[in-house]
């Protein structure tokens, strides 16, 4: 993957933005979704590591808005806009949302991956941001990074090697 550019690391339930000479990376996505927003003209990119589908279930005092699909994506968008991105040029890509463990019965918690994916898509629709590509589902972990100079999203997994979106 891209080592020559400076890497911005996004942790679990975290988000960050970068400009043309940055690579933004998050590691070990399982049921979490890594969502990227990108302005191709300004070469500005952002990434959120979404852990849970909706902030409605939050019982924490101080809400970490990067954790939930419905709050992380609007925040990522506004961070990107404040860097100078143009609203109607912004496009999205995402990866993750796997179901790492297959259980018979499979309650709602175990289906968290697909639910995270659905919530991210809904949030993008609400904000009218086109989803250009996705690599979601399956039963394997992913490490992803977006190269802000090209907008390409690289996805690495143990089973499938490196994939480019």
């Amino acid at each position: 993957m891209n080592e020559e550019q400076s890497v911005i690391k996004v942790g679990m339930a975290d988000l960050n933005v970068g400009s043309h000479d940055h690579v933004i990376r998050t590691t070990g996505l399982g049921s979490c979704v890594g969502l990227t927003l990108y302005d191709p003209a300004k070469k500005l990119g952002g990434m959120a590591h979404v852990m849970l589908p909706s902030s409605e279930i939050a019982r924490e005092g101080k809400l970490n808005i990067a954790k939930f699909a419905d709050t992380a994506i609007p925040e990522l968008l506004s961070r990107l806009l404040s860097l100078g991105a143009i609203r109607n040029r912004i496009v999205a890509k995402m990866a993750g949302g796997a179901q790492m463990f297959a259980f018979a019965g499979g309650n709602d918690t175990m289906r968290i991956g697909p639910r995270n994916v659905e919530s991210c898509k809904r949030a993008l629709e609400d904000l009218n941001i086109p989803l250009l590509a996705e690599d979601t589902g399956g039963s394997y972990g992913r490490t992803i990074e977006i190269a802000c100079n090209t907008g390409l999203l690289y996805i690495r997994s143990v089973q499938k090697g490196i994939k480019e979106l």
Partner: peptide
């Protein structure tokens, strides 16, 4: 599962994730 530790262990953190 045999996979990246982060991807696996995140399953154990969902309940705590609602709190902090």
């Amino acid at each position: 599962a045999m996979d990246m530790a982060g991807a696996i262990l995140s399953y154990g953190l969902l309940q705590f994730g609602q709190m902090g």
